[in-house]
């Protein structure tokens, strides 16, 4: 799915996959930070966003 989205022009860094156990608080924080930073770097997304009429 990630590959196909990237293929049609959704930047790779907008979609993240991760496996975090409920015991891995530090990892959760780390991943959340990474996600936020990489999405922020890309700026707001206008793709695949429907505007009405």
């Amino acid at each position: 799915m990630g590959n196909l989205l990237e293929h049609i022009g959704i930047e790779k860094d907008r979609l993240h996959f991760s496996w975090i156990s409920s015991a891995e608080a530090t990892k959760f924080v780390k991943v959340a930070k990474e996600v936020t930073e990489s999405v922020k770097a890309l700026g707001p997304n206008n793709r695949l966003v429907k505007k009405l009429g």
Partner: peptide, 14 residues
Amino acid sequence: KIENMSSDDKWNYF
């Protein structure tokens, strides 16, 4: 060929 395009070009292509 498509994979080598930039995200913008891919988006416009599709």
